[in-house]
Design a protein around this nucleic acid. Structure first.
Length: 426
RNA sequence: GGAGAGGUGGCAGAGUGGUCUAAUGCGCGGGUUUGCUAAACCCGUGAACUCGUAAGGGUUCCGCAGGUUCAAAUCCUGUCCUCUCCGCCA
């Protein structure tokens, strides 16, 4: 959510930004509403002051008749106040809807445009794309052969999009978490394992919308809880409503959680096997920073993501996401797309991480502030998030990249001590 | 899950319908006194929004949301959280 005052003072900038992001919002309607709200609010305050004055007088009235007359006067004033107040509340609601639809500002260096492939700045990781002297299998075939994933059992138990990891896939899942957390701890991130459910107001604070036709979120019937789509949700909620000492910033956290996504409308897409599933495990970075620290923190998160994937020997490209593809909260977003030999026809890049600088957009909704010692007042913190490792997609890349001609799979070197094996073979 | 108690400023803690503009203490900031420090004494001390060039003013906030009333920290309802006891449980 953007600051109202900011929108009023920078109308053209906000309009241009909405256009760049492909979001249609009627800023002029919002400004008109805001003006109307102010007028009505002043009216409410006047009526309120008058009514309070009457209330004070009631105590001093001598005769019951005088008291009754004053009470009546007060009643009338309150009634009128309530009418105008209701009007104010309604305007406020409308304003809120518009305000929540306005996306964050965009980083000046973020490529402008809607088609995300056109003018992106990219760079590649350390590992070159491998060539195979045989026809590589995709991860579904590999997992079948080596008894690593049971999609059918997953479907029987929970429906399509669910799966059982088995055997070395489980060891890989554990190892990948340990590996990622180790790197993050060395970088000063406090590891957490988060609730997998969160209150709906926390979801909304982080910019996720529970319920509704477009939602990606599973909600628990009869409660105001939802399954989290990422640890970003509970980690953002961690500081909701809090005021942090500026000295404690930046605050680096990482969370291990299960992630649940309905993937509504995703059916039929290139989403075979583990690539697009309803549940997976993820290690997520999250940071609360001072406003002037967030750009550097964003770079730090990107560097860590690269470190994770360079370490695993996975080839990838970094994408500086174009404005039209940023979503609501992000000011700038970098994605890592790993090379997946079994994807598409002869291999394709597939998104494996995403790191966003949300500036104060989430913080405003979450009401997460900081205070500088000795200074008056508070300001909103900046929040950032980034995937350290999403197990399901990392598994796709690892299984497909590390397959050998004889059908076995080599374990990436950094994971060997954690898995306790060099290869997967039957 | 059952029974009970409770949520008030940075903290502790008073306040049970109208001078609450929230007592008091601690903490914190400043000052006086003073070889130094401490003590003592004095003054000040929350946040959000908003008006004003400023000095300063206004509105809202007693977990949260509703309700009753001319008037709510105070009464009522719901809800969240905390604590104690019982039950259940990995």
């Amino acid at each position: 959510m953007l600051d109202r005052k900011f929108i009023l003072e920078n109308t053209e900038l906000v309009k241009t930004n909405c256009k760049n992001r492909g979001v249609a919002v009627d800023i002029d309607a919002m400004i008109a509403l805001e003006k109307l709200r102010k007028e009505r609010q002043t009216e409410v305050e006047k009526l309120n002051a008058d009514a309070n004055a009457v209330s004070k007088m009631i105590g001093q009235m001598k005769t019951p008749e005088e008291k009754e007359a004053k009470k009546e006067e007060g009643r009338l004033l309150r009634e009128r106040k309530n009418v105008v107040q209701t009007e104010v509340d309604e305007i406020e609601k409308k304003l809120d809807v518009i305000l929540r639809g306005i996306p964050n500002l965009s980083h000046p260096d973020a490529p402008i445009g809607a088609d995300d492939q056109a003018n992106l700045q990219r760079f590649l990781g350390k590992t070159p794309i491998p060539t195979f002297d045989f026809e590589p299998l995709d991860h579904v075939q590999l997992a079948e052969k080596l008894d690593l994933i049971d999609f059918e059992a997953g479907a029987r138990v929970a429906g399509a999009g669910f799966y059982f990891l088995k055997n070395e896939a489980v060891l890989l899942e554990l190892a990948l978490q340990r590996y990622a957390v180790e790197i993050l701890m060395q970088a000063g991130f406090t590891p957490t394992s988060t609730p997998d459910l969160a209150r709906n107001d926390v979801l909304q604070g982080t910019g996720y919308i529970p319920r509704g036709p477009e939602t990606q979120i599973y909600s628990i019937d009869g409660t105001d809880l939802s399954l989290v789509a990422t640890a970003e949700i509970p980690l953002g909620g961690l500081m909701a409503g809090q005021t942090i000492d500026a000295e404690k910033l930046p605050l680096r956290l990482c969370g291990i959680s299960h992630c649940f996504r309905t993937e509504a409308g995703a059916a039929g897409k290139a989403s075979k096997g583990l690539y697009r599933v309803h549940q997976f495990t993820k290690v997520e970075m999250f940071a609360f920073t001072l406003p002037d620290q967030s750009d550097a923190m964003h770079q730090e998160m990107l560097d860590l993501e690269c470190k994770v994937f360079d370490g695993l020997g996975i080839p990838y490209q970094v994408v500086d996401t174009a404005t039209g593809d940023l979503g609501g909260p992000a000011y700038r977003k970098f994605d890592l797309e790993a090379w997946m030999p079994g994807r598409g026809n002869g291999g394709q890049y597939g998104e494996v991480t995403s790191t966003s600088n949300c500036t104060d957009f989430q913080a405003r909704r979450l009401d997460a502030r900081f205070r500088v010692k000795g200074e008056k007042g508070t300001q909103f913190v900046h929040t950032l998030n980034g995937t350290a490792i999403a197990i399901s997609r990392a598994l796709v890349a690892i299984l497909e990249l590390y397959q050998r001609k004889d059908g076995s799979i080599e374990i990436p070197e950094v994971l060997r001590p954690l898995v306790g094996k060099d290869e997967i073979r039957r």
